[in-house]
Computed example of a mutant assay.
Amino acid sequence: MIYEVRILLGYAKIDPVDGPNRLWQNRRMRRVWLEFSTGDWIEALIDDQATLPAIPVNNIATDGIRIVILESLPPALADGRDFTPISEVEVLGVVR
Results as ranks from 00 to 15, higher is better:
1 M>G: 12
1 M>V: 10
1 M>Q: 09
2 I>F: 08
3 Y>C: 07
4 E>D: 11
6 R>P: 03
6 R>L: 14
6 R>D: 05
6 R>N: 08
7 I>T: 01
8 L>H: 11
8 L>Y: 07
9 L>V: 03
10 G>H: 07
10 G>P: 02
12 A>H: 11
13 K>Q: 11
14 I>Q: 08
14 I>D: 09
15 D>L: 03
16 P>H: 03
16 P>Q: 04
16 P>L: 10
17 V>C: 05
18 D>Q: 12
18 D>Y: 15
18 D>C: 13
19 G>I: 00
20 P>T: 04
20 P>V: 04
21 N>E: 07
23 L>F: 13
23 L>E: 05
24 W>Q: 07
24 W>V: 07
25 Q>T: 15
25 Q>E: 12
26 N>W: 05
27 R>D: 02
28 R>S: 15
29 M>E: 02
31 R>N: 05
31 R>S: 06
31 R>Y: 01
33 W>R: 15
33 W>C: 15
33 W>A: 13
34 L>W: 03
35 E>V: 06
35 E>M: 12
35 E>I: 06
36 F>Y: 03
36 F>M: 03
39 G>W: 01
39 G>C: 05
39 G>E: 03
40 D>L: 08
40 D>G: 08
41 W>Y: 14
41 W>N: 15
42 I>E: 04
43 E>I: 15
44 A>C: 06
48 D>K: 09
49 Q>N: 09
51 T>W: 07
51 T>Q: 12
52 L>Q: 05
52 L>W: 06
53 P>E: 00
53 P>I: 08
54 A>S: 14
57 V>C: 12
58 N>G: 15
58 N>Q: 13
60 I>D: 03
60 I>P: 02
62 T>C: 10
63 D>P: 03
63 D>R: 15
65 I>A: 02
66 R>D: 09
66 R>C: 11
67 I>A: 06
68 V>P: 05
68 V>E: 09
70 L>Y: 02
71 E>N: 06
72 S>D: 11
72 S>V: 00
72 S>W: 03
72 S>C: 09
75 P>M: 06
76 A>E: 14
77 L>A: 13
78 A>P: 14
79 D>P: 04
79 D>G: 06
82 D>Q: 13
84 T>Q: 02
85 P>V: 00
86 I>L: 08
89 V>E: 04
89 V>I: 14
90 E>N: 12
91 V>H: 01
91 V>W: 07
93 G>Q: 02
94 V>H: 10
94 V>D: 04
94 V>I: 02
95 V>S: 07
95 V>Q: 11
95 V>A: 10
96 R>C: 02
